[in-house]
Design a protein around this nucleic acid. Structure first.
Lengths: 204, 204
DNA sequence: TCACGGCCTGTCCACTGGTCCAATGGAGCC
DNA sequence: GGCTCCATTGGACCAGTGGACAGGCCGTGA
């Protein structure tokens, strides 16, 4: 049988929680290790909910759902990052709570679609930059200049860039002059700042 | 009743798909609008799976799960970004497929834990940095050093930093030496790279 | 063939960046 | 009063940077 623990500062159940799960248990501290499947509902009204979440989710068969009186995207992300499998409104209807329980007990994640969209977007935005070599800034440079620009923006000195590209330090300077001219920057620092979104790219 | 459509190039079912859902239907083109709940399983062996996913997921009561013969995180992110509610291995066991179906039909997302972790990490990394003013890196510096560090990381020359902070260029150098020492970086470029997450902060 | 552009290299020079050594004044602590 | 930490500045010195000017090699296209 699946147990539903509700961890709140007041250690009592809201009527709708009881309506959702007949066997709901109000608690004020983490329950003992439970062999059976269980859902641990943690309220964000608990000041130390983050810490509790972090320790409670460690290698257990317990699914944790964070419930908030006023859900925000930032808070949701925190909850998920800390190991929660779900994040929802504390005043969700009993039917909704049961949905959430079904999802997390079956290995899924329950988050708002907007939150999910945001999480995904942030992830892909990062790598799309990496994948996208034909940027307006970099495409103005020749292939060799691009290599020099990335090396320098990575923090290498002229000598080091020369070594990695197997050319003379003088040549690096020549390319740099062209780069500064084309990108309208005065020095390597401004170049690095202009190319900062490509930081991950340059490092790899 | 829940319908399960399997969209593949060959338009035939694998045995395990049939084992998972008695009413599974093999298709080669998008089905007509379905009023009932339905799960649309799209195989990545379909060359145009991205496009199909994008148009198929538009405002329907159909949950889309992308199945891949060789799942990767990048592909998973693409799928989720394009509107899929789940992403899993095409050769998952029937029991697993049923789990996935339960989750997505109840409004959840089914993604690998690693994938989820990555998505979350990418999102929170950016903003936690901005929100967190007392970072281990910057808090190792004195107040004055911090100001110099941010100015320099912003791309200012020593002379300019001196002017904005209303001190001598010589003093800027002194602070910089201390900064390089404390943060264990060799020059202003490395400093800028180390502080690059603070770019937004420094500019403002 | 000649012109043009990308790529590579060289020398000379002025400026910038970074370090070493050294010093002063102020704030806080035992 | 000593003592420590911080901010400030100075001089000297050398490595790193960037510009000016000049040349060579090679491929494409008029």
């Amino acid at each position: 049988m699946t147990r539903h623990y509700f961890l709140t500062p007041e250690a009592h159940l809201l009527p709708r929680w009881q309506a959702a799960f007949a066997d709901a248990l109000p608690i004020s501290v983490l329950p003992k290790a439970d062999t059976a499947d269980a859902v641990l509902w943690i309220s964000t009204r608990l000041p130390e909910w983050r810490a509790t979440l972090a320790q409670g989710g460690a290698g257990e068969h317990v699914r944790i759902v964070v419930i908030s009186d006023s859900p925000t995207q930032a808070e949701g992300l925190e909850a998920l990052e800390a190991g929660a499998r779900g994040y929802c409104h504390a005043l969700s209807t009993p039917a909704m709570l049961r949905e959430v329980a079904v999802v997390v007990l079956h290995g899924g994640f329950w988050v708002g679609p907007e939150l999910m969209a945001r999480a995904i977007r942030a992830t892909t935005a990062r790598q799309s930059v990496i994948a996208d070599m034909t940027d307006p800034v970099l495409e103005r440079l020749t292939e060799r200049e691009r290599a020099v620009a990335l090396a320098v923006a990575r923090g290498l000195t002229n000598k080091e860039a020369a070594a990695t590209l197997d050319i003379t330090e003088r040549t690096v300077k020549a390319h740099l002059s062209a780069i500064f001219e084309k990108l309208a920057v005065r020095d390597r620092m401004q170049l690095a700042l202009k190319l900062s979104p490509y930081g991950e790219l340059a490092t790899s």
